[in-house]
Amino acid sequence: MLQIKDLKAKIDNKEILKGLNLEIKPGEVHAIMGPNGSGKSTLSNVLSGKKGYTVSGDVTYFNENLLELEIEERAHKGIFLAFQYPLEIPGVNTNIFLKTSLNAVKKANGEKELDAIEFLKLVKKKASELKFDENILSRQLNVGFSGGEKKKNEILQMSILNPKLSILDETDSGLDIDALKIVSDGVNASRSKESSFLIITHYQRLLEYIKPDFVHVLINGQIVKSGGSELALELENKGYESLS
């Protein structure tokens, strides 16, 4: 479903990604690990279409050139980015935001939009599955949320939008062990033959809860090593230095 060939990305004339190659098939879970500044967040930003990067290379997503699509078109086609730092939007009710977002995606795909009642039912179901406090949904989007609440909110959105490719950018950062467990359960519950994951993380900890099919090591803008889930443990023990 996703083929990345020789992906390069520059920001302010500084090259961050320096020829990255990666292929993800439906149902696979890939983890990208790497030290700070290796280009992990740039990868997630470039895949979701954030402006400000000069990008070259090929990224094919379901036989389409992903790089030509607008941010929201990528979202409509099933790309979801769980933000490392979810944005606060004052005055905007979380529920209304979720509904607007879900219906925008549905509309773009020619599906029937949900009315308020159907939507509420869906949210309630997903929230209880995720052990997510429903009161949060009536609050302003991410405003005054704790770090853990923000991350849980991202996972709730993910499970409602039902994306084909979920990119989790450092979702484990700032989470205590209970929140980490809830977030991981949410991700695991969303795993299916059709949905793929790209998990970006600095630490191996998250991968104890979400078992990846593949682990890639990103250093200095390139994938320097790939392997199975055992690679994560190896990195934990030996550190990134052994590979650079």
Partner: peptide, 25 residues
Amino acid sequence: EEQLFYCNQRGLNQEEAVSLIVNGF
């Protein structure tokens, strides 16, 4: 820009995103 990016990433186009954020304001 970040707020717009966040809304775009959730499938809202620019006009929808602006309208949503301004209505929140």
